[in-house]
Nucleic acid binder design. Structure first.
Lengths: 241, 241
DNA sequence: GTACTTTTTGTAGAGGTTACAATTACCTAT
DNA sequence: ATAGGTAATTGTAACCTCTACAAAAAGTAC
């Protein structure tokens, strides 16, 4: 062990400054759910390169800005939402992924209720629009790949982590919860079995309230209790929808 | 939708060149398994900052090098192994994580058989040594956090992905497989139940050979069949150990 | 052959999942 | 008030899987 390697490309044969000529960006996959539809927020680029193409919202990371903060800032600029923290998924670092220079990008996602948001274009975007995840246009850069990976990551995360709490109102019915999962995961659950499993989860608290003004038997409302959820997991339980 | 936001910090009020004064690195968590022990390869830094401290092997990414290639190169430099591709886990990008400048690092891991490797120190390392994951010394930078996250990622990945195939010989017994999982996941499996579950997995092919020169009933040898594994999953199956 | 060790097979019971049916509660129209 | 429509809620039998534990088998060493 610890024998010196005979020959090794010398790192310092490249001027050290050359390593500080690259940049990093964040790209944000903002999913919006509403009424059994899953969409994603895309911008139409207002500047070169790829001017006019659809792309994921993103930005370079400021020199004195944390990576996570940069993602939150992009979300804030677009949606005015301050209290969301985006989830990091993966970094993309092919040499030629950005035509203007070496830019490594870190992909983030969030899942939100579509109706709560009025997204607004930033200075670098001509237009901004929700697109169904089933019909994604051609995207700039390697954003198609980034989107796909984030969609997969979100789908596997939602089974175990409560990233869906932002999507439903504070009080929701189990049917609403079921529809959300059916839409996101593209599969059907049996109504009876789903509610049996889910209503056994201690962190979903049954309320003394029901739906009103529905033309059928009203459903009991539930709420997600974050404190109970944390305890539930700390005592070794694994959540699986 | 698409209304212009009234006020926005202008990206271009910061000279664009300032964005190209940062660097990225990769850090590699190389796990080594042998004889019911899980270890990790650490280097002792030979240069400032943190000279003399233990750290994860890593390096700046070359200007014309893909991110994934950089991780593979670090592994190659240390171990001479060429055909491994490391798994990306997560990026770490706090502003002050590197004392000399803005450096974002991308963490990778691999899982190998410890005995097959004679690691050798690179130019930037005084020493290199396997450390039990149970006794990790103080580490430079934020490497403790990186190691923890990679260990968690490896533990959850190994249940579903065959990242363990490098660790066992081409032909292995089910007991060896069981010991590997018990060590990595720190839990016990029932012998009978483990082999029942595992021998039902179609991609683990039972061979017509047995152990030789053992002082007890010889075990049947198995091999991992990659082609069958791919088919198995393409037909919708999920693997879970 | 006998003792020893580990592999390999078997099994009963507990517990969970699945498909499907029956019942309940509220609204609306008559 | 009563009947009909709709979806929530509860129930259940068949089936499957997991668990703990035990018994049998197949080598080596003596």
């Amino acid at each position: 062990m610890a024998k010196k390697k005979p020959e090794k490309k010398d790192l310092y044969s490249i001027p050290i400054d050359d390593f500080f000529k690259s940049a990093f960006s964040v790209d944000c996959v903002i999913f919006g759910y509403h009424d059994k539809e899953l969409k994603v927020l895309l911008i139409q680029r207002g500047a070169s390169p790829f001017e006019g193409d659809w792309a994921l919202p993103g930005d370079l990371v400021y020199p004195h800005e944390d990576l996570d903060s940069a993602a939150d800032r992009v979300l804030m600029d677009l949606t005015q939402l301050e209290d969301i923290s985006m989830r990091q998924v993966k970094s993309f670092g092919k040499v030629k992924r950005h035509p203007l220079g070496r830019v490594i990008t870190v992909a983030y996602f969030a899942l939100l209720e579509l109706q709560e948001i009025s997204p607004m274009a930033s200075s670098w975007a001509k237009d901004i629009k929700w697109h169904s995840v089933k019909r994604i246009p051609k995207l700039a850069f390697d954003h198609k790949e980034i989107l796909t990976e984030c969609l997969n990551a979100m789908r596997s995360l939602i089974k175990h982590e409560p990233i869906w709490t932002r999507v439903l109102s504070k009080k929701f019915t189990l049917t609403e919860l079921q529809e959300l999962f059916e839409t996101v995961l593209m599969k059907k659950y049996d109504k009876g079995n789903f509610r049996k499993k889910v209503s056994a989860m201690k962190f979903l608290k049954r309320l003394q309230e029901s739906q009103v003004n529905v033309r059928h038997r009203p459903s009991t409302l539930y709420k997600f209790d974050h404190k109970t959820f944390v305890q539930y997991r700390e005592s070794g339980n694994v959540v699986e929808f």
